[in-house]
């Protein structure tokens, strides 16, 4: 796949991730888990997809663009900082764990770990911004909720990856 195609794909993935992250704000998850800013992490699916089929460098770029744009569209500077710390930490975790995907780990476990790292990053950023350790009280609940959230994104990824085989997108990319 040539450079133009890759860039176009990256742009499309960024747009998709942005749309997903904005859409999931409409899901009132706070009713179930009483923590401000709790999210399903659907945009994480896109990030993992990018890691699977593109280069890590591109995955990081997509993540960065998505987080900045999401903050621009609906959010604040503090939120940007939270998402960026959480996102980078999550992405790095995913990247490392994906090397053993299929042998040691499945998408479910990787998604859960990634969600957990995302939450840890967010809480760390919040502690730094608010100059207070009180935020850490949210962490246990956030960590536990990372497992069901991981199952949701993991399932999506599992299904999607199987379907992608038929499209042979990878062939185009690598060709």
């Amino acid at each position: 796949m040539n450079k133009t195609k890759r860039i176009a794909l990256c742009g499309m993935l960024t747009a998709l991730a942005l749309a997903l992250s904005l859409a999931e704000r409409m899901i009132p998850l706070e009713w179930i888990v009483p923590i401000p800013g709790v999210k399903l992490g659907l945009a994480n699916v896109v990030t993992m997809f990018a890691l699977l089929f593109l280069k890590p460098k591109e995955a990081y770029a997509i993540l960065f663009c998505r987080v900045v744009l999401a903050a621009l569209f609906a959010g604040s500077v503090t939120q940007l900082l939270f998402s960026l710390t959480g996102g980078m930490l999550a992405l790095t975790t995913t990247w490392v764990l994906l090397h053993k995907q299929g042998t040691w780990f499945s998408f479910y476990g990787i998604s859960a770990a990634s969600a957990a790292m995302h939450n840890i990053g967010q809480v760390l950023a919040a502690m730094f911004v608010m100059q207070s350790v009180d935020v850490i009280a949210y962490l246990p609940l956030l960590l536990v909720s990372a497992i069901p959230m991981g199952f949701v994104t993991g399932a999506i990824l599992d299904v999607m990856q199987k379907h992608m085989r038929h499209f042979n997108l990878t062939g185009h990319l690598n060709g």
């Binding site: 609940l141 536990v144 909720s145 069901p148 199952f151 399932a155």
Partner: peptide, 16 residues
């Protein structure tokens, strides 16, 4: 999907 949903709901119920 059923299994995933069940696990999710169970977790939420425990948390709530």
């Amino acid at each position: 999907w059923l299994c995933t949903a069940a696990v999710t709901i169970l977790m939420m119920a425990v948390l709530a």
